[in-house]
Structure formats: C-alpha cells, structure tokens
C-alpha cells in the first residue's frame, strides 16, 4: 500500500475539503521527508524533470503523473505512474 497520493494535488480519493485533508497532506509530506529526505519542492522538481525526459520519447500526460513512496519488505520504493497517449489514437494507457 502506498502513501503520498495527496502530493501534487492529485484527487482521486474522496474529497471532503476539511482540515483532515490538510492534515493528511502535511503528514504525507513529512513522512516522505522522514523516509527519503525529499521535500515537496524536490519532488516537484523530480516530476518536472521526469516529464521533460519522457516527453522527448513519448507523448505523456504531465497532469496525470503520480509519484508514490511505497513501504516494502526491503525498504521504501519510489513508484512513478505516468499516463501515456497511444500513438495515433489519442487514447491513454499507463506505464510505470
């Protein structure tokens, strides 16, 4: 199971805009820092740079990129989920 979903304003989960959402966002950010010493700014930079590199070879949807930190057996993993447009059709798949 992953956390960090709330980062980059992704909002696939239910969206009561109460203070709980703010709490969750802050918690996720602070845990990313605790685990991998990355600040939200640095993560945003990673996202931008990944976008730039991938865009050279693929047609991607920058808004749909999700970066997640997942706690696993052997430690933490950074998982990026990048939606790509299928050549010619405009429909989308996703690649990791």
């Amino acid at each position: 199971m992953g956390w960090l979903d709330a980062l980059f304003g992704r909002s696939t989960s239910r969206t009561p805009r109460g203070s709980a959402q703010i709490a969750k966002q802050r918690l996720v950010e602070v845990l990313v820092y605790d685990h991998v010493k990355l600040t939200p700014d640095v993560l945003e930079a990673i996202r931008r740079e990944m976008c730039a590199i991938l865009s050279r070879h693929l047609e991607i949807e920058p808004q749909g990129i999700e970066i997640t930190i997942v706690r696993g057996e052997g430690g933490d993993r950074l998982v990026a989920n990048v939606p790509v447009r299928r050549a010619g059709t405009g429909s989308r798949g996703a690649t990791q």
Binding site: M1, G2, W3, D5, P16, R17, G18, S19, A20, Q21, A23, K24, L27, V28, L31, R71
Partner: peptide
C-alpha cells in the same frame, strides 16, 4: 469530526501506516 472531514479517518491512518 471524521464525518465533517476535520479528523483523519481510520482509513487515512491505515493507508499511511500500512
């Protein structure tokens, strides 16, 4: 408070701590 969206829910906490 959870219902009002002003407290982390059990699901929120579980999602984070896994």
């Amino acid at each position: 408070l959870v219902r009002r969206g002003d407290m982390l829910s059990v699901e929120d906490v579980l999602e984070i701590l896994a």
